[in-house]
Nucleic acid binder design. Structure first.
Length: 267
DNA sequence: ATGGTAGAGGATCTA
């Protein structure tokens, strides 16, 4: 079974690349982030023609997450449940971020899959940064309420967090920035303490392995990237894990996303 | 010189 996560940075702009890539790689499950589409505009029929069922949680203009599957889509949940309370007290701004289209969950082929687009945070002195930390608390609480680490669970997507300094091309360049702060990394660590393993890192300990490269200044060709797209998987999935890869070829060529697809295969 | 590009929408905001 092949599962993939890909921040496409506008599915409208990326659809030709996504269709070509799907036909070539044939994953069983594809999680998308940043579709930037309303649900009405989501091209479910085009994906159906390629053999995929799909569910989408969109809001137009920004955000938007989806799950495509060839192995069924059951028990779909859109965003967060009511009644979650962990994390700092929230104001209207944080509540607004929590309500955005950044999380969709479904069961595909017996695996509980979530496609996540974690808030960027912008800068550490921006309200968006606080909202990012609360968002990660809510994700953990929802998982603890709705599932269990003894079950096959995968949370994959754009976490907008580099787990370690070696997950950015030059740690010195990121001093004082979001994506690398101890607070963000602590939220990731709490998810791992609950029962997740970083599947790609579990297989590949090497440095200089990235999933995102800024469009600007030729960063991709200069190997100036960040590993901020992750597959978090529980032990029943890690036990079945055979390999993982970042498809850098999808970052090349005409009109690429700034993120590459991250894939895992499980037996 | 705090730069650069891409995508939203149609002036700037977001990443």
């Amino acid at each position: 079974m092949r599962l993939v996560t890909w921040n496409v940075n506008s599915l409208k702009a990326r659809m030709p690349r996504v269709e070509e890539w799907l036909a070539n790689l044939q994953p069983d499950v594809l999680c998308l982030q940043e579709t930037k589409l309303s649900d009405a505009a989501f091209p479910a029929m085009a994906f159906q023609a390629l053999g995929y069922e799909s569910v989408h949680f969109g809001q137009g203009q920004w955000n938007g997450v989806a799950i495509l599957s060839k192995v069924g889509i059951e028990a779909v949940r859109y965003g967060f449940m009511e009644g979650l309370e962990v994390g700092a007290p929230i104001d209207d701004y944080v509540a607004g971020v929590l309500a955005e289209a950044r999380l969709i969950t479904a069961t595909c082929g017996g695996v509980e899959v979530s496609s996540v687009y974690v808030p960027n945070g912008r800068s550490v002195d921006d309200p968006h940064y606080g909202a990012k930390l609360v968002w990660l608390d809510r994700l953990r609480e929802q998982l603890s309420r709705t599932t269990h680490p003894a079950r096959p669970v995968v949370v994959m997507g754009d976490f907008n967090i580099a787990p370690e300094d070696r997950d950015v091309w030059d740690p010195a360049k990121f001093t004082g920035s979001t994506h690398v702060t101890p607070e963000e990394r602590a939220k990731l660590a709490e998810l791992e303490q609950w029962g997740f393993t970083d599947a790609f890192r579990h297989l590949y300990p090497q440095d200089h392995l990235y999933t995102y490269w800024d469009y600007r200044a030729g960063d991709f060709h200069m190997h100036r990237g960040m590993r901020i797209d992750l597959v978090l998987a529980t032990a029943p999935v890690i036990d079945r894990l055979t390999w993982s890869i970042v498809d850098r070829n999808a970052r090349k060529g005409k009109l690429p996303s700034d993120h590459a697809p991250l894939m895992i295969d499980i037996v």
